[in-house]
Amino acid sequence: MITRSERLVILTLALVVVLTVLAPLALMVATSLKGDENRILLDIGSLAAFWVNPLEAEWTNYAQVLASQTQPFLRFLFNSVFVVGWIVVVGIFVNSAAAFALSRLRFRGRNLVLAVVVALIIIPMEALAIPLLLMVNRVGWLDTYQAQIVPFIAHPFSIFLFYQFFAKLPKDIDEAAYVEGATPAQVYWKIALPLSGPVIATVAILQSLEYWNAYLWPLMVTRGPEVRPVSLALAQFFGTPPPTWGDLMAFSVMMSLPILVLYLAFQRWFIQSVVASAVK
């Protein structure tokens, strides 16, 4: 049993955590809704920075960001959605198929491949960036969508997550299907993949987050606004003096929204799979 005072301590702690997490978000949203730049500068440094009077809230910052000719926000947003969408959707199939092969098919060097995949999880993107840039340059993909999509479809951590899931699926189920005349491809497509809902959700969220926030690689391979993602655009927006905090925050809010929506859509599954992997 939890006593009253214990409950109070727990609630207080939870509140502190929630406030710590929410404070920057509140600052971002509040600032984005303040039309007067001087007001923002005045409020910063006091608690007023985290709050905007609903009656005084203005959408001018949003309008300005959306209207900018030099920094076409909607174009950036589309680029990000397009790139991340392709990575995630194609990635689900490629990574799950790879994991299925690693967990289910017998072939020479399988364990070696698995070891390499696991090892690749810990290699940071930064370490691969230069050689990858040379390769992308070689095939003439600079300043294209492909350069931002193709190298990231295969995702070691996603393969690992799928692998773990498939490894736990009873082999009897596959064998029953083989006895019934299914081919390995059919077992993958009609049984393994439909059962992987929670993993698909997890992988989709992890990969989306990773590439939605990508910075270094888009910086290296994109030049103009045509294919540039919104994450990189934000940084450049920030770097264009003088900083107008209201616009910047409006930009940030709009950039965060799609990923938030995606998370909320998959959240139930995501939490389920995190919990399941914790319990088992």
Binding site: P170, D172, I173, E175, A176, Y178, V179, E180, G181
Partner: peptide
């Protein structure tokens, strides 16, 4: 297996969940 004209029932049932 499918060409042998057999059907198998597993201890774990092995139903498709």
């Amino acid at each position: 297996p499918k060409e042998r004209g057999i059907a198998m029932v597993f201890q774990s049932y092995a139903l498709y969940p």
